[in-house]
Simulated assay, not measured.
Amino acid sequence: MLNDILKNVDGSIAVAIAGYDGMPVASAQTDPNFSIEDAVASAAMGLTYSKKMMEDASAGKVKESMTTTDAAIFFLRPIDEEYWIGMALEANGNLGKARLEMKKAIPLVQKQLQ
């Protein structure tokens, strides 16, 4: 399923399902030089912080989180209280398609994690 997401999203670099502990459960990537383990660990910290920040602000649950840089876009979606799915894209990657593909994947991933 993760490889299909990569194929369907122009500019994709990597996609991962991971826990909030920063450990990847499953991953796939198109760029062999991309350190998915480092990215997942950092993204887990950022997403955990975002969740806490929104709770403190009484703003509700985080539905998505995105960070853009000169070279890449990092897009994350919580799956449940334990896991999240994230994707790294080139700066000019198709973010709309990434959002759609990840949204479609979440129910399938939830079934597999049960």
Rank of each mutant, 00 (worst) to 15 (best):
M1D: 07
N3H: 14
N3K: 13
N3Y: 11
D4R: 15
I5A: 10
L6N: 05
L6G: 05
K7D: 14
N8H: 12
N8L: 14
V9T: 04
D10Y: 08
D10F: 10
G11C: 05
S12R: 06
A16S: 13
I17T: 02
A18F: 05
G19W: 08
G19Q: 06
Y20Q: 11
D21G: 08
D21F: 10
G22H: 09
G22L: 05
V25E: 03
S27T: 08
A28W: 03
Q29C: 03
T30E: 15
T30S: 15
P32Y: 02
N33P: 00
N33D: 15
F34C: 07
S35E: 07
I36P: 07
D38A: 15
A39N: 06
A43G: 14
A44F: 08
G46A: 15
L47I: 05
L47K: 07
L47R: 06
L47V: 11
T48E: 11
Y49E: 12
S50W: 00
M54F: 03
E55T: 08
A57K: 09
A57T: 01
G60K: 04
K61P: 01
K61I: 06
K63E: 14
E64Y: 11
E64L: 04
S65F: 14
S65E: 10
T67H: 14
T69L: 11
D70K: 09
D70A: 13
D70V: 01
I73H: 04
F74A: 11
F74Q: 13
F74M: 13
F75H: 15
R77P: 03
R77W: 05
P78R: 03
D80W: 14
E81W: 05
E82M: 15
W84T: 01
W84M: 10
W84R: 04
G86P: 12
G86I: 04
M87G: 05
M87S: 08
M87Y: 01
L89T: 07
E90P: 00
G93C: 03
N94I: 06
N94G: 08
A98D: 04
R99I: 05
M102G: 07
K103N: 12
K104G: 00
I106C: 02
I106S: 06
L108F: 04
L108C: 00
L108N: 07
V109H: 04
Q110P: 02
Q110T: 05
Q112G: 09
Q114T: 10
